[in-house]
């Protein structure tokens, strides 16, 4: 058999079929989530403008869109990435999903593309359009001028980077938990963080008890220490960990049984 046309890991044609299927059955739900967030934000802002005729300081005028965008990106993103591999959590549908003639890699990539790349792009375009209309109306009605969303600021890039990290966590959660990953992933994350900090605490109390840790620590210049390795930390946090978690998700999909 021809190995070029017969690729068992990736074929564009199969991938498009999978995307079409996802679009038909799952993207509707994603759009509803995004729609709900924008509606809620609009409602809140309307109430604020109607009832609170107070002063809007320059900081709020400047940052409103960045904050609103980031909150929506994260909230919506956690929901949408948690809804990945939806059929796998339904006993009556998961066999259909596993047996759909596409490779595990294509199925993984399809979910990643929709919940990460397509989602971010969609949110940016939608928010830009929304904020443009928002600014125009608010200016006409209230005479206020909000700064537009700045896509090339450093804060914006960091927000996206952090979102990628959050995505990789809840993406892994979506294939790990058989039910309600949107609830269980944060719980699991919280427990993990608690365990890590308890462990730290213990180390400090037991292992380093004899040393005067505070004295040692006060000698270290943290600013300098983190500053020195900042790029490394960022690289690990924003690139290495997400990639490891995505790969874990893919491997978990490979091992999925019905």
């Amino acid at each position: 058999m021809n190995t070029i046309t017969k690729n068992k890991y990736f074929s564009f044609q199969r991938f498009m079929l999978l995307l079409k299927k996802e679009a038909q059955f799952n993207v509707k739900r994603d759009l509803l989530i995004v729609g709900a967030m924008f509606s809620l934000f609009t409602l809140v802002m309307t109430l604020v403008f109607e009832f609170d005729e107070g002063n809007y300081d320059s900081e709020m005028l400047e940052n409103l869109h960045f904050i609103a965008f980031t909150v929506m990106l994260f909230v919506g993103g956690v929901f949408i990435s948690s809804f990945s591999f939806m059929e796998l959590r339904d006993k009556l549908k998961s066999h259909f999903y596993l047996l759909t003639p596409g490779s595990n890699f294509e199925k993984f990539l399809g979910n990643l593309l929709i919940s990460l790349v397509a989602y971010i792009l969609f949110m940016i375009v939608t928010y830009l359009t929304y904020s443009w209309i928002f600014n125009w109306i608010v200016f006409k009605l209230y005479g206020l001028q909000f700064s537009p969303l700045n896509l090339i600021s450093e804060e914006f890039l960091i927000a996206i980077n952090v979102f990628v990290l959050v995505h990789s966590i809840s993406f892994l959660g979506s294939i790990t938990f058989k039910k309600y990953p949107v609830i269980f992933t944060p719980i699991a994350g919280f427990i993990l963080l608690t365990v890590v900090s308890l462990f730290n605490e213990l180390m400090e109390k037991i292992v380093f008890a004899k040393m005067d840790l505070d004295k040692h620590l006060s000698n270290i210049d943290f600013e300098d220490f983190f500053g020195q390795y900042e790029n490394l930390f960022k690289f690990i946090l924003f690139y290495v960990i997400p990639i490891i978690l995505w790969i874990t998700t893919y491997l978990k999909l490979n091992e999925k049984e019905y």
Binding site: R14, H95, L99
Partner: peptide, 19 residues
């Protein structure tokens, strides 16, 4: 779960749900 394997096999379970 090679896609060329999946193209040639169909499983009708006792219970199932369509989208």
């Amino acid at each position: 779960r090679n896609p060329y394997f999946l193209q040639e096999i169909f499983y009708i379970p006792e219970e199932f749900e369509f989208p």
